[in-house]
């Protein structure tokens, strides 16, 4: 059920761009949504982190949108994207969240997502002969690798030794 690499062939640069754009868009939306969730649960550190990640993905999405100008980009229905996983590779699984999650735990999930995104383009690069597609796949793979590095750098600021087990001092509240 996790995000994964493509198992189907992407046949054109336009199709690749459609996938890349959707991937960034979903990542941006997801981080933003997770930031909302953390705000709702008053985990300010994580809300800030997710908000920042959303911003970065948003810039990336914007860049891709620019590259799409003048290209033949197909419209793809939600169920027809060619990543093998349940969602686009770069979107964090909301099921992995916890309201007391630490920045380190979140960054480890983000790292996995960026690695998945890298793998998606890298796999494509290795499995297609189409020149245009290869060009874009290489470019995006490189960018995702940069994101991986960024997350790794950020992770260094939150070493495991700093991790403190967080504990909720209050019982759960009954609402209805």
């Amino acid at each position: 059920m996790t995000a994964g690499v493509t198992s189907k062939v992407i046949g054109s640069a336009g199709e690749l761009l459609a996938h890349a754009y959707q991937m960034e868009l979903e990542a941006q939306e997801r981080y933003g949504y997770l930031a909302d969730q953390m705000e709702m649960h008053n985990n300010a550190d994580l809300a800030k982190l997710f908000r920042e990640l959303a911003r970065v993905e948003g810039i990336h999405a914007g860049d891709i949108l620019e590259q799409m100008q003048g290209m033949q980009v197909p419209q793809i229905n939600p169920l027809d994207y060619k990543w093998s996983g349940s969602e686009s590779p770069e979107a964090l699984d909301m099921g992995d969240m916890h309201y007391m999650m630490t920045p380190r735990q979140a960054l480890l999930l983000a790292l996995k997502a960026e690695q998945n995104a890298f793998e998606f383009f890298d796999h494509l690069l290795k499995s297609t002969d189409d020149e245009d597609t290869r060009r874009f796949a290489a470019e995006f793979a490189e960018e995702e690798q940069e994101h991986v590095e960024l997350v790794l750098k950020e992770l260094k600021k939150h070493p495991e030794s700093d991790e403190r087990t967080r504990e909720d001092m209050d019982p759960p509240i009954q609402q209805e």
Binding site: Q37, M40, H41, M68, Q75, G95, D96, M97, M101, Q175
Partner: peptide, 27 residues
């Protein structure tokens, strides 16, 4: 950009602006 067939609606069109009260991680 030349989108061949513009989709009528995106998933986000069906979402309201409210943030759910569900616990993060909830299915």
């Amino acid at each position: 950009m030349n989108i061949q067939q513009s989709p009528n609606f995106k998933a986000s069109d069906y979402k309201s602006g409210l943030t759910p009260v569900w616990c993060p991680g909830c299915g």
